[in-house]
Amino acid sequence: MERYDINDVPDPFACAMEAALSLAVRLAAPESAALDHAAVESLIETDGREILRRFFQGHLDLRALNEENSPPPREVTGRDGVPRTHRERGRARQLTCLFGTVSVTRLAWRNRGRPDVRPADATLSLPRGRHSAGRRRLAVREAIHSSYDQAVEAIGDRCGRVLGKRRAESLVVEAAQDIDAFYRHRIASPCTADMPLVIQVDGKGVVMRPEALREATRRAALRKKQQGRQARLAPGEKPNRKRIATIATVHDTHPAKRRPHDIVHPPGGRSDRRKVNPGPKAVNRWCTASLIHDPDDVIAEAFTQAADRDPGQHRPWLVLVDGARHQLDLIQAEARRRHVKIDILIDLVHVAEYI
Rank of each mutant, 00 (worst) to 15 (best):
D178K: 03
M17K: 13
L21I: 15
N69K: 14
P210E: 14
Q332I: 14
V173G: 02
I355M: 06
R338N: 01
K341W: 08
R166V: 10
P83N: 04
Y354W: 13
R93E: 07
K257Q: 15
C159R: 03
Q313C: 07
R106D: 02
V351A: 13
A92W: 07
S147Q: 06
V102E: 03
R258F: 09
A139N: 02
Q177K: 05
G78Q: 05
A108I: 05
E237I: 01
G134V: 10
L345N: 08
T192F: 11
C191Y: 12
R285I: 14
P316Y: 13
P30Q: 04
V319Q: 02
L98H: 03
H326P: 11
R184C: 04
R325T: 14
A212S: 11
K257S: 15
T96L: 12
P119Q: 00
G81T: 05
F303C: 04
A324V: 11
V264E: 08
R274D: 15
I187N: 07
D194T: 09
V264F: 08
G203R: 01
L35C: 13
T192L: 12
P196I: 04
K224H: 15
V319C: 04
S189Y: 09
R106F: 00
E153P: 07
P190W: 11
G81Q: 03
A335H: 05
P311V: 05
V250Q: 01
C191W: 08
G81H: 05
L330H: 00
R84K: 04
A154C: 06
E237M: 01
A302K: 01
P260L: 13
F55Y: 03
Q226E: 12
P267E: 09
R285Y: 13
L65A: 12
V40M: 10
V321G: 03
P10E: 01
E301C: 04
R186F: 14
V319A: 03
Q305L: 12
K341L: 12
L318K: 08
Q57I: 00
S32R: 02
D329W: 04
D308S: 15
G164R: 03
D194W: 09
